[in-house]
Design a protein around this nucleic acid. Structure first.
Lengths: 156, 156
DNA sequence: CGACAATATCTGCAATGACAGCCTCTGTCA
DNA sequence: TGACAGAGGCTGTCATTGCAGATATTGTCG
């Protein structure tokens, strides 16, 4: 998303910061994904789902809830869960009062693989992103970008 | 990529800033992509290619160069360019001294569509990202994340 | 010159993602 | 209680990606 590198005024400082955000996430994510595929045997999309389920209670989450909180997958959740289920990391269970619904829960294996994956993942993020900035910089970025990971997604 | 929201110490400030970067780019990008598809008739991946070509000289870029600078597409460039070419926005031309190579250049229509698209795009980014932070915040984010959009991609 | 590794790009094929329409089950309301 | 809109997920289908293996040129060396 190159535009004009030569942007003159700093009334376009926002543009430089946007590029920073964009490039940083693209690059770190690319690295993280390939690392995860290689070492954990599944991609970040799976990790995203597993982490949401790990954070949820033992009752898991319904497909709809999962779709709402998932960062990456906006569509195709059904089949994504199919795959993860086929790998034995999650299980679909009936929802007590509603025969339409399904709740997705982590299996023991799923939790285990998740725990292993998150350890690696954090290390990688810390190494590739965390250590490259000062605490003060992290502080101000976290503060500035807070709204985006705290608001409900407006795109929905 | 939920992990522990409850992370206690601020020796993990890096983690919050990473989440900020991640969520921000994911959300703004989602918005930008759907807006572009809707109004310009092509997705951000096309825009990415068009913008690189617009920045390149009139000789365009070779596939390989394009692949190096493109932010989004790491594979499937051949077919991506196929599609854009089929739409008449770029053209493949022979490379003078090397019959293996191809250079991709923007057509007049391509340049036109690109110019229209970039205007909208900038507006959207400014509105959804630019205006939501102070100049000082942009300043410090831009400064902190500078390395990532300035370094050669290490993942290659 | 002829063999061969290295380049530059393309193809084939399987996995993943986007969308739209379908089916089942619920809750409501006459 | 029975029609019916709406909710919750799933399936069909097609576009896009990801990878590995072709193809066609070049450059290098003996």
């Amino acid at each position: 998303m190159q535009m004009d590198d030569e942007s003159s005024a700093d009334d376009e400082a926002w543009f430089h910061s946007w590029r920073g955000v964009l490039f940083t996430s693209a690059r770190v994510l690319r690295m993280a994904d390939s690392d995860m595929v290689q070492h954990d045997g599944f991609p970040l999309t799976w990790f995203d789902v597993l982490s949401r389920l790990a954070d949820a209670g033992p009752a898991g989450l319904r497909m709809q809830e999962l779709e709402e909180v998932a960062l990456f997958t906006r569509s195709g959740l059904t089949r994504l869960v199919d795959r993860i289920e086929a790998a034995g990391l999650v299980r679909r269970e009936p929802v007590p009062g509603d025969r339409r619904g399904v709740r997705v829960v982590l299996t023991a294996a799923g939790r285990q693989r998740y725990v292993a994956a998150i350890a690696r993942h954090r290390e990688l993020i810390e190494r590739e992103f965390g250590r490259r900035l000062t605490p003060a910089q992290h502080q101000s970025i976290a503060e500035a970008l807070w709204p985006w990971w705290h608001e409900a997604d407006p795109a929905d």
